[in-house]
Amino acid sequence: NVYQVTSSVVRHCSKLIYSKTDSKCLLPLLLNKLMISSSSGQPPEIPALIRKYLCHFLHGLFVINKDQFIDRKIKQIFSHYFLSYLQSDPNSSTNPFVLLVSPAFYETPNKYDCDVFLRVLDIISKQQLMIDESIPNVNKVLNFLHMLSSRVKYYYLILEATPILLGPLLSLFLRMGPPPSTQNCVVIIKKIFRKLFEANKSHADELPHSKLMPVIQEYLVSNLLNNK
């Protein structure tokens, strides 16, 4: 089918079908036609095809570095699909966003897989952790982030993820309302913090010197992690 062939082309040849200087190059046309077009009037089988091949499209986009247009398209895809897939199938192997980062779960992932994992964390933490969204949605996003951090075996990836997640999670926590509606969110945030801090503490000698991180860590340990 068209999605199968096109997703393979995008995944393996994205740099060949994209040009910053050619507004009519093939890649943007394919994205706009197949991935980001309006769902109104689509044949009923299209959503399932998008879900099946979305991971391949994203892999093709992630290999194009430092391009503002591509970055916008990636964020647009996350904004369009991430929450809806999280609602229906949050952590399973059929979720395209789990498939996208799953190579980073190996003992020794390669640099590309680590970079994709960290960029995905960055996009999700900046785009989806907004307290003005519904608490159930925030709770699902936090569960997803906790699942990702829990499945990572390569400790250095957790060290790299710490500055990406720390600020958005702390900001979210400080802006939360009183329990019981936010209680589950707070529990998950604490679990993620604990995972981050355990890795950082175990490998402190490998971290760049920072005066700020120990202060933040002490505050969080004293005020969050030790509160049962």
Rank of each mutant, 00 (worst) to 15 (best):
F117Y: 03
D122Y: 07
Q128V: 06
Q128S: 02
D122S: 12
V138I: 11
I123R: 03
M147W: 02
P109S: 00
F105H: 06
H146P: 11
V120Q: 00
V116D: 09
K126H: 01
L118C: 06
S102I: 06
Y106P: 10
M147D: 14
K126C: 12
K111A: 12
Q127A: 03
N110Q: 07
V120E: 03
L118H: 08
V138L: 13
V120K: 03
T108W: 13
L118V: 03
I131W: 11
D132L: 05
P136K: 01
H146Q: 13
S134Q: 15
Y106S: 14
N143Y: 08
S125H: 04
V138Y: 04
I123H: 03
D115G: 11
L121A: 08
L148D: 07
D132Q: 08
D115H: 12
D115T: 14
F144T: 01
T108S: 14
S125W: 08
F105K: 01
R119V: 12
V138K: 07
E107G: 12
V120L: 01
R119A: 12
A104E: 13
D132C: 02
C114W: 05
E107V: 14
V101H: 03
N143T: 10
L142V: 03
S134G: 10
F105E: 00
S149Q: 09
N143A: 08
F117C: 04
D132T: 08
K140D: 09
C114N: 10
I124T: 04
K111D: 15
F105N: 00
S125F: 02
V116A: 02
R119I: 13
I123V: 02
E133G: 07
L145W: 03
I123G: 02
I131H: 06
D122Q: 12
N137G: 11
L148S: 00
A104F: 00
I135K: 01
V138H: 04
C114Y: 01
L145S: 00
E133P: 10
L142T: 05
V101C: 02
A104W: 02
E133Q: 15
A104C: 13
A104Q: 11
N137Y: 14
V120N: 04
E107P: 12
C114Q: 14
D113T: 07
V116R: 04
E107A: 15
V141C: 08
V120G: 02
L121F: 04
E107L: 15
I124E: 07
I135A: 07
Y112V: 12
Q127T: 13
N143S: 12
H146M: 11
Y106K: 09
D122P: 11
C114M: 15
H146F: 13
L145Y: 01
V101K: 01
L148E: 09
P109V: 04
L129Y: 01
V120Y: 05
R119N: 14
E107N: 14
K126T: 07
V138G: 05
L142W: 05
Q127R: 09
L118Y: 03
S125M: 06
M147P: 06
D115Y: 08
V138N: 04
I124Q: 05
F105P: 05
N143C: 10
N139G: 09
H146C: 09
D113G: 09
L121C: 00
L121E: 07
F117A: 01
N143F: 06
L142G: 05
